[in-house]
Simulated assay, not measured.
Amino acid sequence: MRLRRAFLGTGLAALLAACASPFRSWDVQPGTSRQDVLARLGPPTRVVAIPGGERLQYSLQPFGQEAWMVDLDGGGRVVRARQVLTAAEFQRIVLGQWTRADVEREFGPPARVDGVASWNGPVLTWRWRDADRSDMFYWVYLDERGVVQRAHQGMEFINAPNERN
């Protein structure tokens, strides 16, 4: 019986740890060194160049719903850190101007890249949560040149009730 309780307790703790964002308890302040960021957050998903420095991307895609960007200046100090998978951040996308490189620099790698019969180019998909904590998708449609031509949000129905009653 004790072994069973220990197993259940360990399993529950692991499950809760997997569901929690590793960044909620971390407060990366401006001026923090690159070395301190790496010591606290670990290796980033990706490192990309930005004007005047570099961006450390910490993405929880494809299954998570957050992507944190830690911007560093040329001296390797934090300028700002923020979670970018939000409605306000997605509104910054400029149709007809942004490329795939621009979108991935700002939001990290997508959860999926798909193709659909009604669109002649790849469709990038990010998973996120809106202000009401609803599970969402954000789709970015690229043309054959890799330029964003369309972008919009939609609901992600996880464990939706069976509507065939």
Rank of each mutant, 00 (worst) to 15 (best):
G75I: 00
G42H: 04
E54V: 09
M155L: 15
L16H: 00
E54S: 08
V116S: 14
I50E: 15
P22G: 12
L16N: 00
Y141A: 05
Q29I: 10
P110K: 07
L60V: 04
L41N: 04
E144N: 12
L124C: 05
L95Q: 06
G64M: 03
S21E: 02
G52W: 06
R46L: 14
W26A: 14
G121A: 01
F63R: 09
V123F: 02
W68E: 12
L56E: 03
R127N: 13
T86Q: 07
G96Q: 05
R127F: 10
E89W: 01
P122K: 11
E156V: 04
G115K: 14
E54H: 02
Q149S: 08
P22L: 09
V48Y: 00
W68Y: 13
G121W: 02
D135I: 03
V79G: 02
N159F: 15
A131E: 13
V147N: 01
A87R: 13
R129W: 07
A39C: 07
G76C: 05
S118A: 14
A20K: 08
R40L: 08
E66Q: 13
G31N: 02
R2P: 03
Q149H: 08
R4T: 12
R46C: 07
R112Q: 14
G154L: 04
E144H: 12
G96K: 01
T32R: 06
F90D: 02
E66P: 00
G121T: 03
R82I: 07
R80P: 00
R40P: 00
R150E: 10
Q97L: 11
D130C: 04
A160S: 11
C19E: 15
V148D: 08
G74K: 02
V94A: 13
T10Q: 07
A49Q: 14
E106V: 06
D143V: 05
A117D: 14
S59I: 04
T86K: 08
L95V: 11
F7C: 07
D130Q: 08
S25H: 11
A39N: 10
A117E: 13
E144I: 08
P161Y: 06
I50C: 06
Q97N: 06
M155K: 11
V123G: 04
A87K: 10
M155A: 14
G52E: 08
R77G: 01
S118G: 05
I93N: 01
R150W: 09
R34D: 11
G11I: 00
L38F: 04
R150L: 09
R105V: 09
A88T: 11
L41H: 03
A87M: 09
E144K: 10
R55D: 15
G108A: 08
G154P: 02
I50H: 10
N165P: 15
P62W: 00
R34L: 12
G154Q: 09
Q149W: 03
R150Y: 10
H152V: 07
A67N: 15
V84H: 03
G75N: 11
V116H: 14
L142D: 01
D73T: 00
H152Y: 11
G121D: 01
L3Y: 06
R92W: 03
